[in-house]
Design a protein around this nucleic acid. Structure first.
Lengths: 218, 218
DNA sequence: ACGATACGCTACGGATGCGTAGCGAAGATG
DNA sequence: CATCTTCGCTACGCATCCGTAGCGTATCGT
């Protein structure tokens, strides 16, 4: 495959996609016009239309070629895996292109079926590695056998998104550590109403440095 | 104040704001054009411009007059307060106008300082009632004294947002119950590294009907 | 009943964006 | 070196939207 090796197309394509992502992050998807992409990238508008049929295809392609899932740490411990993944998420949500791209994608997914499919697909790819880590943890007995990995995923990632996008713009790695700590603690504690799984009285002794000294602003 | 009592302005204003919100929910903020609002509302475009200086003011006013914070349940128990608030949030995020409005507002807040201020202000109003409930719970001893209410808020609301907007579109009240259950359990469990607060061996016996039988799709 | 006010309507001028066509120049390929 | 492809550029036609002006009509306040 890929008999297309003309360096001109590859170069213009890469330049245009880069500029498109920058503009989406800065001004949002609807304001990312083809003419703005042409101006910023230095590539002529007609050249852009030679490689993409319309504006939607360009923006979609830009998202498509940039989002990539995190790497599976597989440290051997569920806690370390989750800390690794969650601090990585916290980092991606504060710095990195995803910081401004994610809200745009979520918003677009609410209305455009094409973006919804893209969003779903990329979220699945990202979540797979987290779900795998959780599943391994269950297999090792670090979580009860009846734990729903999907629940744990939302419990873990949700607070980071919420803090970043809704409650407070400050998102620290400390918070990611606390979230992992609390979610694991909740699941390794016998439930009040339901018969408990294995109880495992805390095999986790990591010094987790819970220093919370932030303004408790909402 | 409010010496404006002309029923004509009140009527056109209400009609236009309603149509504006509908359009924002359907097509997003940037696609909510004044002409589209005029067409849908039946109010002439010139009339719209008589009450709002420009498009931004109209959209902003539409958000402003619609978002309202939840009511404080104050049931006497932290758990019941949180279940009430969280199921209310789950309901608002699935049905109701906020379902489609929230992503648009979050996205707009990332780029437009005016929308950022609105978002921050409305989020604060919403969060205040939750933080109050948490603070009352701490005062009653239902949570350790060193609990950070802002952390608990993100732990509670985050998973609902995440499930609704990112992982899976299905958001049930069951999930809200489970989140409250787990977050409370985590905080009323002695931490491994830190001296525990009061332990209170479960004053909660509510039959919370934890029936999880969903496809563990991400 | 009668001024005052808000309304709907038509018609603008200006701007911006979409997507296309044609042409000469520059670079790639063999 | 000769050919083929891509590129940049200018110039469109079409559509949409912004925000404003003017005018006649319906409605409100008194």
């Amino acid at each position: 495959m890929t008999p297309r090796t003309d360096p001109r197309v590859a170069r213009s394509r890469a330049t245009v996609l880069r500029a498109t992502l920058d503009l989406v992050a800065e001004r949002g998807i609807p304001a990312t016009t083809v003419e703005a992409v042409a101006e910023r990238s230095g590539v002529a508008k007609t050249t852009i239309y030679r490689q993409w049929p319309d504006r939607a295809a360009l923006v979609l392609d830009a998202f498509d070629t940039t989002l990539d899932p995190p790497t599976d740490p597989d440290t051997g411990t569920l806690r370390d895996d989750l800390v690794h993944l969650l601090t990585g998420l916290a980092h991606a949500l504060t710095t990195g292109p995803a910081a401004a791209l994610m809200p745009a994608l979520v918003d677009a997914a609410q209305r455009d079926p094409v973006f919804a499919a893209l969003h779903r697909r990329e979220a699945d790819r990202r979540h797979r590695v987290v779900l795998d880590a959780i599943t391994r943890g269950i297999a090792r007995g670090e979580l009860p056998a009846d734990t729903d990995p999907a629940d744990v995923l939302d419990l873990l990632a949700g607070p980071l998104f919420h803090r970043r996008l809704i409650s407070a713009p400050e998102l620290t790695t400390d918070f990611a550590h606390r979230v992992v700590d609390l979610v694991l603690r909740a699941h390794t504690t016998p439930a009040p109403g339901r018969p408990e799984g294995q109880v495992r009285p805390w095999p986790i002794g990591r010094g987790n440095t819970v220093r919370d000294a932030d303004a408790p602003r909402t």
